[in-house]
Design a protein around this nucleic acid. Structure first.
Length: 273
DNA sequence: AGCTCATGGCGAG
DNA sequence: TCGCCCTGAGCTG
């Protein structure tokens, strides 16, 4: 369930549970056994997150670089850890808590230099306060690629996934097929600011909510809705359902091997000029 | 038991 | 653009 907000939350949660304390490290599944042996007994002394990349820093050893991919999960537990199941790639534990990592695309022990190379190839992250949206604008403003595809390109902007891209384009009334170069600077600045606020709230609540209070079904005089993914959204996975604002049918289409969702009425391309 | 799908990303053609 | 990697939930039989 990982977009950038999840990763930043996981970084903070790891530090809260394990920071400053020696941890036991193991790889019940086996694929990370050699590195886990190096980490065993070491102290987690810093964490970092950039986009969907999570970094756990162990002094004297290096960084554990984790990317959850589409399927990866990190599960926390309190107290003494139960016997792990055989899909646990990495277990970190001390007497009071444990964390089990399953199904990640990446789990590797890396150096400072290797970590730096990862930062260098990622675009700015709305959740990293020092990151500059101008770096992304430079790519977008001269690209013929659709804005929907650009938002998913982690070298352009880091941390946005399929939910935030669909939702932020809806919130700004932007046609997902609009080429990046046809977006205005004002639109981009508004998208960035909105993403920063939405994702910040996502970190806080550990879920994605994007529906403005005035558009909540109750406020619109409609019965409450049950979303199957845990948060309140306008268009994501609402194919065929009525738009919360205009009641038109939400559409879906494949775009770069992912499902794109949008409202054809609310997200119209500006008249050609 | 087997299929499909999921908030990702990579490399081959 | 496609196939592939990683796992688990929610269907269908």
């Amino acid at each position: 369930m990982p977009e950038g907000h999840t990763i930043h939350r996981l970084a903070a949660d790891h530090f809260a549970r394990f920071g400053g304390r020696p941890v036991r490290a193991s790889s019940p599944q086996g694929k990370f056994s050699d590195s886990a042996a190096l980490l065993d007994g070491m102290v987690l002394d810093r964490v970092d997150a950039h986009g969907k990349h999570l970094f756990l820093g162990f002094d004297q050893v290096g960084w554990v670089h984790i990317h959850l991919g589409l399927f990866g999960k990190l599960g926390f537990g309190d107290g003494k850890a139960p016997p792990p199941t055989d899909t646990v790639r990495l277990r970190l534990a001390h007497p009071d808590a444990y964390a089990d990592l399953r199904g990640p695309t990446t789990c590797a022990l890396i150096t400072d230099g290797e970590k730096g190379a990862i930062h260098a190839r990622l675009g700015p992250d709305p959740l990293r306060p020092a990151d500059d949206p101008a770096a992304a604008w430079g790519r977008i403003a001269r690209s013929r690629t659709t804005i929907a595809a650009l938002l998913m390109d982690q070298t352009v902007i880091a941390g946005v996934g399929n939910v935030y891209r669909a939702e932020v384009l809806f919130r700004h009334g932007i046609d997902p097929y609009l080429p990046g170069r046809d977006l205005s600077r004002a639109q981009w600045d508004a998208i960035w600011a909105d993403l920063a606020a939405l994702m910040r709230e996502g970190v806080r609540n550990n879920r994605i909510d994007t529906v403005r209070p005035e558009h909540e079904p109750e406020a619109m005089g409609r019965p409450p809705r049950q979303d199957d993914h845990g948060g309140e959204v306008y268009v994501y996975r609402r194919t065929g359902q009525p738009c919360l604002i205009c009641a038109d049918e939400i559409r879906t289409a494949g775009l770069a091997a992912r499902n794109l969702f949008w409202c054809p009425r609310c997200q119209r391309r500006p008249a050609a000029g």
